[in-house]
Design a protein around this nucleic acid. Structure first.
Lengths: 150, 150
DNA sequence: ATAATTCCTATTAAATCAATAGGATTTATA
DNA sequence: TATAAATCCTATTGATTTAATAGGAATTAT
């Protein structure tokens, strides 16, 4: 399961991508109210997103947060990695967070590893394609009741 | 990431499927040594697997554990669910462990949910096909250096 | 009877998670 | 230039989960 941090981060990012066409700063408390997130908790989350380069902020009165990158350049893979670490289900198949399974005898011939390598590959692939733009497209498609045209 | 319990359970099951063709009971301590797992910890894990119907045991002297179902009827999806709960990354897309995202406004039109529903579907699909037999096949293929024939 | 094994319950130490608290810093604007 | 309103930063906390450990009860082959 995703952590609450990761989930709230995604919700906040999608909110900003949806509501903030002009890129004027939006306050933490506005996002917190709309998305039903504790303001103080969200504060820390948005700061992390800023330090990761996805958001930028304006300080002081009339300050707030806005997207630093375009909505099709921010994807769910990088957000979940930022808060929850590896996407892989086993450390030995992670790329950015690789670690050896201490109990493993031979990584190269491990059938379990082989399974989870495939799972990781597919998952990362799907989450990388899930950009903020993509998510908003899905919202619109679901809202209007359309199906994917194919 | 999988919990250690889930990982150890998979290792133990694959061990039993590989080493235990005659289905005579194998002792906990034998598996623990081979797979580098704490004996006491493995004890609890194997008991859970027994209660879930995947293993059976013989008590007393010369007792031990053996597979209750055939190796192609035990898959990684059910093992990880047993120890780690839902495979889904969001509660709202889980099937067996469904729960509402409290902060969600409308599940039916949520683009985030839509993404994670796809991820879950693919993951469950892959993990269901990853049976003990399949894993041992992979081991053999990897050991002999063959590629999948296609 | 004995030894060897699984079965069962309880406890624990450490880590992680989800949040809260409080104030420092920055900035628009009256 | 004072004030209000916002982000920024550090520290703390309570609850939960994880990964084990401990100790003994029950069972069974020899």
């Amino acid at each position: 399961m995703l952590s609450k941090k990761a989930k709230y981060a995604i919700n906040a990012l999608v909110y900003l991508a949806r509501e903030n066409k002009g890129n004027e700063p939006i306050q933490i408390s506005t996002i917190a109210k709309s998305e039903h997130i504790s303001r103080k908790f969200l504060e820390a989350i948005l700061l992390d997103l800023k330090n990761a380069g996805m958001l930028n902020s304006k300080k002081g009165k009339a300050g707030g947060y806005y997207l630093q990158k375009s909505p099709d350049e921010i994807n769910i893979a990088e957000v979940t990695r930022l808060f929850d670490g590896a996407i892989a289900l086993l450390p030995c198949v992670a790329h950015l967070y690789y670690a050896k399974c201490e109990e493993c005898k031979d990584e190269a011939t491990c059938g379990i590893r082989d399974v989870f390598a495939e799972v990781r590959l597919e998952t990362v692939n799907m989450l990388k394609h899930a950009t903020l733009s993509d998510i908003i497209n899905r919202e619109e498609r679901l809202t209007s009741g359309q199906k994917t045209p194919l």
